[in-house]
C-alpha cells in the first residue's frame, strides 16, 4: 500500500485542484462510471490466490492422513472428490464473482458529492458530500500496480462509514478523484 511519487507531488496543499479549475471539474461529470475493466482479471487473480489458500492446506492435510495409512481407500476417494468439488466450486464462484462485482459497482462524481455503488445481492449506494471528507488516500498494492489500478479511500467523521473505499479504479482516475475531493485550500474549518 504505497503511494506513488506522482501522487505525492500533486497532494500538496493549495495545488490547482480547487473548484473552478477545469482539470479538477472534468472528473466531476455527474455521470455514472463503471469500474476499470482490468479490475475483473485482478479480482480473478485474487480469487485464485484465495482458492489456493483454502485448498492447498486441505490437500496437505489429506495427503498426510493418507500417508499415515489412516482411512481405507474408499473413504480417501470420497474425501479427495470432496476436496476437488470444494476447490473447483470455490474457484468457479470467485471467477464468476469478479464479473458480477464489476457489473454492479460504479461511482458518480458530482460537483459537491461522490456516490459509490457496490454489492451484488445486498447493494448499497453510499453518498459522501465533499464538504464532509476529512481526508483521502490512494493506495496501490503489488497486484494493483501490475494492472495499473488503485484504491481510493475516503475518510469521514461518520461512524458506520468512517472509511469508504472504492477499488478497481485506474490509478490515474483515482488520483484525479482524490484531487477533486480534497478540500479547497483555506477551508480548514476544524
Amino acid at each position: 500500500m504505497n503511494e506513488s511519487t506522482h501522487n505525492l507531488e500533486t497532494a500538496g496543499p493549495g495545488d490547482p485542484a480547487a473548484p473552478g479549475d477545469p482539470a479538477a471539474d472534468a472528473i466531476a461529470d455527474g455521470v455514472r462510471h463503471g469500474l476499470d475493466p482490468r479490475s475483473i482479471p485482478l479480482q480473478r487473480v485474487v480469487g485464485r490466490i484465495v482458492t489456493a489458500c483454502v485448498s492447498l492446506p486441505l490437500a496437505a492435510g489429506i495427503a498426510v492422513a493418507w500417508a499415515a495409512g489412516g482411512p481405507p481407500p474408499g473413504v480417501v476417494a470420497a474425501i479427495v472428490s470432496g476436496w476437488a468439488v470444494i476447490t473447483g466450486g470455490l474457484g468457479w464462484w470467485l471467477h464468476r464473482w469478479a464479473a458480477l462485482h464489476h457489473r454492479y459497482a460504479s461511482y458518480t462524481v458530482n460537483a459537491e458529492d461522490i456516490e459509490i455503488r457496490s454489492g451484488v445481492v445486498w447493494r448499497k449506494a453510499i453518498c459522501v458530500p465533499r464538504s464532509r471528507v476529512q481526508h483521502t488516500d490512494v493506495s496501490q498494492g503489488p497486484l494493483e500496480r501490475r494492472y495499473g489500478l488503485g484504491t481510493l479511500g475516503i475518510y469521514t467523521a461518520g461512524t458506520d462509514y468512517a472509511k469508504v473505499s472504492l477499488d478497481g479504479l485506474e490509478h490515474e482516475t483515482a488520483l484525479r478523484i482524490r484531487d477533486h475531493l480534497l478540500p479547497p485550500a483555506g477551508a480548514d474549518a476544524v
Binding site: A125, I126, C127, R132, T156, A157, Y161, V164
Partner: peptide, 11 residues
C-alpha cells in the same frame, strides 16, 4: 451533522 448518506437494498 450529516456525514454520509447511504441507500441500501436487499433482494
Amino acid at each position: 451533522r450529516i456525514q454520509v448518506v447511504a441507500l441500501r437494498t436487499t433482494p
